[in-house]
Amino acid sequence: MKKVALIASVAMVFSLSLNAWTLGKLGDFKFEKVNDNVYVMHGPVMMPNKENGGFMNNPALIESKNGLIVIDPGGNYNVGKNVLAEVEKVSKKPVIAIFNTHKHGDHWFANKNFQEKYPNVKIYALAYMIEQAKDNAAETWYGILGSLTGNLEGTKPFAFPNSSVDHKETVVVDGQTFIMRHPAAGHTDTDILIEHVNSKTLFLGDNLMKNRFGAFDESSSIFGNIQILENVIAKKDGYKDYKLYVPGHGPSGKLHETLDPFLNYMKIIIAGAQKAYKNGMESYEIKEEVYNNLKDYHKWDDIEGQMGKHLMKAYSEVEMRDF
Rank of each mutant, 00 (worst) to 15 (best):
M1R: 09
M1V: 08
K3D: 13
V4T: 14
A5L: 13
S9Q: 07
V10W: 12
A11H: 04
F14G: 13
S15R: 07
S17Q: 07
A20H: 10
W21D: 05
G24D: 04
K25W: 12
K30G: 00
F31C: 04
V34G: 04
V34K: 15
D36A: 15
D36T: 12
N37T: 12
N37S: 14
Y39V: 05
G43E: 02
G54H: 01
N57P: 00
N57M: 06
N57I: 09
N58Y: 05
P59W: 02
P59L: 05
L61H: 05
L61C: 07
E63A: 13
S64R: 11
V70F: 13
I71P: 00
I71G: 01
K81E: 14
V83Y: 10
V83W: 10
L84H: 13
L84E: 12
E86R: 10
V87G: 03
K89R: 15
V90T: 02
S91V: 09
K92Q: 11
N100P: 03
G105Q: 07
G105Y: 04
W108L: 11
F109I: 03
N111W: 13
Q115K: 15
P119G: 11
N120W: 07
N120V: 10
Y124R: 08
A125R: 01
L126K: 09
M129L: 09
E131Q: 14
E131R: 12
K134R: 15
K134S: 06
E139L: 09
T140V: 08
W141D: 14
Y142V: 00
G146Q: 01
S147K: 11
G150M: 02
G150D: 01
N151E: 05
S163I: 00
S164E: 15
V165K: 03
D166E: 15
D166I: 04
H167I: 00
K168D: 11
T170R: 12
V172C: 06
D174V: 08
T177N: 05
I179D: 01
H187C: 08
H187D: 09
D189I: 02
T190E: 08
L193F: 06
H196C: 12
H196D: 13
K200D: 14
T201W: 06
G205P: 10
G205T: 09
G214F: 06
G214V: 09
E218H: 13
S220H: 08
S220D: 02
F223Y: 15
I226Y: 01
E230C: 10
V232T: 04
I233F: 01
K235R: 14
G238N: 07
G238E: 04
Y239L: 03
K243A: 12
K243M: 00
K243G: 13
K243R: 09
Y245L: 08
G248W: 04
H249M: 14
G250N: 04
G253S: 07
K254D: 14
E257V: 05
M266W: 05
I268F: 00
I270F: 00
A273G: 05
K275E: 13
A276G: 07
Y277D: 00
Y277H: 14
E282F: 13
I286D: 01
I286F: 06
I286W: 02
I286N: 06
Y291Q: 07
L294K: 01
D296K: 11
M307I: 15
H310W: 13
A314I: 02
Y315F: 15
V318D: 02
V318I: 12
D322F: 12
